Measured scan of single mutants.
Amino acid sequence: MSIQHFRVALIPFFAAFCLPVFAHPETLVKVKDAEDQLGARVGYIELDLNSGKILESFRPEERFPMMSTFKVLLCGAVLSRVDAGQEQLGRRIHYSQNDLVEYSPVTEKHLTDGMTVRELCSAAITMSDNTAANLLLTTIGGPKELTAFLHNMGDHVTRLDRWEPELNEAIPNDERDTTMPAAMATTLRKLLTGELLTLASRQQLIDWMEADKVAGPLLRSALPAGWFIADKSGAGERGSRGIIAALGPDGKPSRIVVIYTTGSQATMDERNRQIAEIGASLIKHW
Rank of each mutant, 00 (worst) to 15 (best):
N173M: 15
H110E: 07
G85W: 06
T107I: 05
R202Y: 05
L146I: 09
W227G: 02
I283Q: 06
Q86K: 13
A211L: 13
E35P: 01
P181T: 05
F228H: 06
T262I: 09
H110G: 08
E169T: 13
P12C: 13
Q86M: 11
Y260P: 00
L73A: 11
I283D: 01
V82S: 08
V157R: 12
P253H: 10
S68A: 00
K284W: 10
T139P: 03
S264K: 05
L49Y: 12
D36S: 13
A246V: 13
R92L: 12
I259Y: 04
Q88G: 10
L146Y: 06
R63V: 07
L205F: 05
E237D: 14
A123V: 07
L79K: 00
L49T: 08
L218N: 03
L135E: 06
D250R: 14
A222D: 09
P165D: 06
M115T: 04
G85I: 04
E87Y: 05
M67F: 04
A148I: 13
K252M: 13
P217G: 09
R255C: 03
T112Q: 15
A183E: 12
L38K: 06
K284I: 11
M153K: 08
S254F: 08
P172M: 12
N98D: 11
M184P: 00
D113V: 09
L247S: 02
H24P: 06
S201Y: 05
Y44T: 02
S51R: 07
A15D: 02
P217E: 10
W208T: 03
E61W: 12
A183Q: 12
T187L: 08
Q37K: 15
G114W: 04
R271G: 08
S104A: 08
L79W: 01
I206N: 08
T131W: 02
T198F: 07
L137Q: 05
I256E: 01
S96D: 12
S254L: 11
F13W: 11
F22A: 10
S104I: 02
R189L: 10
M1H: 01
I259K: 00
S221V: 11
M268E: 06
K32N: 10
L247F: 05
E35D: 05
H24S: 12
T131L: 06
V214W: 05
D83A: 05
I259C: 07
A215D: 02
L135V: 10
E102V: 11
P20N: 14
V101Y: 08
P20A: 05
M67H: 07
P217T: 11
P143C: 06
W286T: 01
A40Q: 09
K144S: 15
G141M: 06
S68T: 00
P25L: 10
P249I: 06
R241L: 03
N98I: 13
R118I: 09
L282E: 04
D207T: 12
V31K: 00
S233I: 00
V8W: 08
G52R: 05
K144I: 13
N152H: 15
G39Y: 10
